[in-house]
Design a protein around this nucleic acid. Structure first.
Length: 486
RNA sequence: CGGGGCGUGGCUCAGCCUGGUAGAGCACUCGGUUCGGGACCGAGGGGUCGGUGGUUCGAAUCCACUCGCCCCGACCA
């Protein structure tokens, strides 16, 4: 037995599932599409929650909780929203032995129930803005499911805000998207492209949808977060009205935005390798694992030193675990913690103690060096920061190498077939071309980036003119990023 | 939802074709020796063979239905 993990090059999907299972992130349950998130996976989610929640609060948002069940009639109120979500909704038609007069649906998202409450709570412009976030589970009846990436039930946060004016709602929408991008890049070490979704990829009922898109290790794109400007669509459907400064009664402008446990899938597929998971230090439940090397009477010689080391690191603010289990050999532990993605491993044995040093091995580069015990805290803190940066740089470099600007449809088709990744191309904006491209190449418009030349775009045309549509040749107003996606 | 594949101790699988008392390796438990890249010896525990129904004296094995998982396509965070 060496790894029990299928190599990425052999079968990326299987590799992903192997990592999820072997690293004990999640496991299948008896309910189709529903996974049990195991303690190690949940610890990652808790760090994601903490990082985001802190940012939401810092930008004036507060948390609240709304019901899991929604009267089915409420869903029907916003036409596009119903059409978008109806096929994915789970229904409750019976309670105990009673048939329900009106069936309940299990929330696939909470716009309608929250909108209904906002209609009660908002009376005046003085009540605005309302900036509420909810941490919750939602259910979407999926046909094809994969752990973390698409599950029938998943955990997420959904922000729902109401504003006095259209520009304020737009500001909020973009502010949150920027927050998501900053979080993904600084905490998850995952570079993302932020931009606007095409009409056909828009959230059901939104005026505008924005997303952050990341590139996975197999060259497919993953939507990692979305932020929607809902305009007055939901305000009108749910009669969320207020009396304005000018005494007239108006509809509010709303937004909604969310990220989910899918981020854990993104993390796995952004950084992982054939040995398993690689976690960026800032999101790793254990940033360091200490493996004592047992020799002779090690419980009384090596172990106390390992405990001292642990205490020293805790003092330095490092999340550290001491693996003092006697039943496993050091070599076994090395492989085990590598597979589970711990950024740094420290080995301490008689030889180290003699030198007053400790062996340190990086998960990302596998470099192994000896560090003096003296001032080990600051040294490890610095090393963790280096790893965090190195993982981001590596992921960005990978994305750059797999992003290509193309000028002709033939080139587009050829590249999309042979080589996974992003293709940047001029697009006229029509749904017709988008659909055609999708059916011919499987690639979809991931988004239209805010930044005309995000890194990795290759040569930019001399002028600001994006050129003519890659497919139909009409004048284009935008450049879009295309990819096969999850 | 269509096409394909697979369901046998926790995991990977053999046994099925040709029906006759359920196996291996790994993992797990206990004892001992070990331990700087997945240690070794000894002794143990654990499966009504995905489910239901049928054929049969007898079904893991044959038949029907059903459920689940994986892969590939159409829909989605």
């Amino acid at each position: 037995m060496v790894t029990e993990i299928t190599p990425q090059s052999e079968d990326f999907s299987r590799w992903y599932l192997d990592v999820v299972r072997r690293a004990e992130l999640a496991d299948y349950t008896d309910v189709k599409g529903c996974m049990a998130i195991r303690p190690y996976g949940y610890a990652i989610w808790e760090l994601i929650v903490q990082g985001l929640d802190r940012r939401f609060k810092a930008t004036g948002h507060v948390n609240a909780y709304f019901p899991l069940f929604i009267p089915s009639s409420l869903l029907m109120k916003e036409k596009e929203h119903v059409e978008g979500f109806a096929p994915q909704v789970a229904w409750v038609t019976r309670g105990g032995d009673e048939q329900l007069a009106e069936p309940l649906i299990i929330r696939p998202t909470s716009e309608v129930i929250i909108g209904t409450m906002y209609a009660k709570w908002i009376k005046s412009w003085r009540d605005l803005p309302v900036l509420i976030n909810q941490w919750a589970n939602v259910v979407r009846w999926e046909k094809v499911t994969r752990p973390f990436l698409r599950t029938t039930e998943f955990l997420w946060q959904e922000g729902h805000t109401a504003h006095e004016t259209e520009p304020e709602a737009q500001d909020e929408t973009l502010k949150i998207l920027a927050l998501y991008k900053e979080f993904a890049e600084s905490e998850l070490a995952m570079p993302v492209v932020d931009g606007e979704k095409s009409e056909s990829e828009k959230f059901a009922g939104a005026s505008k949808t924005y997303s952050i898109e990341a590139l996975m290790g197999d060259g497919r794109a993953l939507q990692a977060g979305t932020s929607h400007n809902l305009g007055q669509n939901f305000a009108k459907a749910f009669e969320i009205q207020f009396q304005g400064r000018d005494k007239t009664v108006q509809h509010v402008w709303t937004t909604s935005w969310g990220v989910s446990t899918r981020l854990i899938g993104a993390l796995i597929m952004t950084h992982g390798d054939d040995s398993g998971l690689i976690l960026p230090p800032r999101i790793a439940p254990h940033q360091v694992v200490i493996v004592p090397i047992p020799r002779g009477n090690w419980q009384e010689t090596v172990l106390p030193k390992a405990r001292e080391l642990q205490a020293e690191l805790i003092k330095a603010g490092v999340r550290v675990m001491l693996d003092d289990r006697d039943a496993y050999t050091p070599g076994w532990k090395f492989a085990e913690w590598e597979m589970r993605g711990i950024p740094l491993r420290m080995e301490i044995g008689p030889k180290d103690i003699e030198k007053s040093a400790v062996m340190v091995a990086r998960r990302d580069t596998r470099e192994k060096t000896s560090l003096p015990m003296d001032a080990i805290g600051p040294a490890v803190v610095q090393l963790l920061a280096d790893i965090q940066q190195a993982l981001y740089d590596r992921a960005l470099k990978y994305r750059e190498e797999h992003t290509q600007r193309v000028a002709s449809y033939d080139e587009f088709k050829g590249l999309m077939e042979g080589r996974p990744g992003f293709l940047i191309a001029a697009w006229c904006g029509s749904q017709e071309c988008e659909a055609q491209i999708k059916s011919e190449t499987q690639a979809t418009v991931r988004n239209i980036p805010f930044d005309r030349a995000p890194t990795g775009g290759g040569e930019l045309p001399a002028s600001d003119d994006p050129g003519s549509c890659i497919r139909c040749g009409r004048a284009s107003s935008v450049e879009a990023w295309f990819a096969k996606s999850y």
